Simulated scan of single mutants.
Amino acid sequence: MIDPHRKIVAFIDEFGDSGLDIKKANTSSHFIVTAIIMDEDKIPDAERRIEEIRTKYFQTAEIKSSSVKNKQPDRRIKILTSMMDIDFAIFSIVIDKSKLVSEGFKYHNSFFKFCHRLVHTELYKAYPNLKIVADNHGDNKYILSFIKYVQKQQFGGDLFNQSSFIFDDSKSSKLIQIADFIGGTIAKGRDKTVLSPDAPRFYDIIKNKVIAIKEWPNNYPSYTYEPQSYNEFDSVIAEYSLRAAEKYIERYKKSKDIDTRNRMICLRYMLFYFRNIEPDKYIPTKELMNRVKMESQNKMAMQKFRSDIIAKMRDDGVLIASSSKGYKIPMNVNDIYDFVNRSNNVVAPLISRVLSARQQILLATQNHVDILDQQEYANLRKLIN
């Protein structure tokens, strides 16, 4: 019987870069994060076996995927085959950067955040006692940003003490070297810089150890989601909200009006966040404002953002939920209630104050002066009467 409280370690390494210009010869077409997962008590035996493999195939050097060229497929096959009797599992995230040019890729930090969410939700959910070991080379932007991401999540205690997240040197960590080699092998079937016709042969060797290789962007249809991923996912509300947002973008995509274009930037970011990052989380107002500022070079005050960006889109039929945490595309009825409650907390006191002033003036003038007796206030009279 498997002990649910056993200590699990994930050794993580990355393949590729986060460069935006994928047409450059040396820029990777994919960004791949690979975790080698195993029980902590099996690490010593694994390291002894890996040392034997390293000595046999790499002599005094590290085990590195880049050391085994495409013209040496048989050598890679022998190395992979020799690794398969070690007790570990493989979890990998593969980002196809070529598919992100038109939409999500310009949100550089966001696709990192998507990676973080996958690792966070998948690995920590499966292994509550997880320890992560990562290479400590200086340019490891993914791992550094991953630490910041997970620190914000709702965990008890200090997640990042020495027992739960540590850096190690790939030269001394044999299992990080395995993560490098497996990640590089997965890249052989995907990345333009290392593509190999032998990739199917390589995958056939490792497939029994693969827990999952998560591809991003996903290939789900525009309105197809996985309700089991979220406890209160209402597909009717979500699909209607997404359609309303997309219709707005389609209607105004050719507009040259500055405010309209700023609304499009804001709405596209909310759609991207909903589909690929965290559909159940609100985007902080300042994050949305910074997105608009970054893409349009237009700085605006908070009140202008709320009145000229958010309010105008709502006036035009876009459903936008809001709370003290920020804004989002509604995912379920509770998101709509958040908006109604927030509006009620603002509108109800204002109406109550207007009603009180009206009553006082009516009393003082013996009903001769009704401050709402103007055509401009017809809608307000309907709400109060």
Rank of each mutant, 00 (worst) to 15 (best):
M302A: 09
F181C: 03
F181G: 06
D280L: 00
I237C: 03
E376I: 15
Y107I: 01
E239H: 06
L159G: 13
F111L: 12
I178G: 05
K42C: 14
L288W: 00
I249Y: 01
I329Y: 00
Y269F: 15
N332M: 08
H108C: 01
A311T: 10
Y142N: 07
S65V: 04
A311L: 07
I361C: 11
R48Q: 14
M289E: 08
V9W: 03
G157Y: 01
R201N: 15
D191G: 11
Q303T: 14
E246R: 13
V292H: 03
P128E: 02
N298Y: 01
K42H: 04
N367F: 05
I43K: 08
N70T: 14
P200I: 02
R76A: 10
G138L: 09
M83D: 00
M1R: 08
N129C: 00
F274V: 15
S241R: 01
F58M: 14
D158V: 14
F165P: 09
S82D: 15
K247L: 11
M1E: 12
V354E: 09
K214D: 09
D135G: 07
I37V: 13
G189I: 02
N161I: 02
E47V: 06
A89I: 00
R314A: 06
D17T: 07
D87W: 00
I336N: 07
Y282E: 06
P4M: 01
N290S: 13
K78H: 11
K328T: 12
F202E: 02
S67A: 12
I211G: 00
I309M: 03
D280N: 15
P349I: 07
L118E: 15
T193Q: 13
A199M: 08
P217D: 03
R268P: 00
R117L: 10
F202N: 07
K188M: 08
E47C: 09
D139M: 04
L267Q: 07
V150R: 03
A89M: 12
Y377N: 14
S343Y: 01
Y248T: 14
N290K: 11
N136Q: 10
I8T: 12
T34D: 10
D168A: 12
S145E: 15
Y327I: 09
A244L: 14
K71L: 09
R306H: 05
N379K: 11
N385L: 04
A238R: 04
R243V: 15
Q375V: 13
A126R: 14
L118Q: 13
G156Y: 04
S65D: 12
S172I: 06
I309F: 01
D370P: 10
S296R: 02
V210K: 06
L267E: 08
N262R: 09
K141M: 11
I36E: 02
I32M: 04
N385R: 06
V210E: 02
R190F: 13
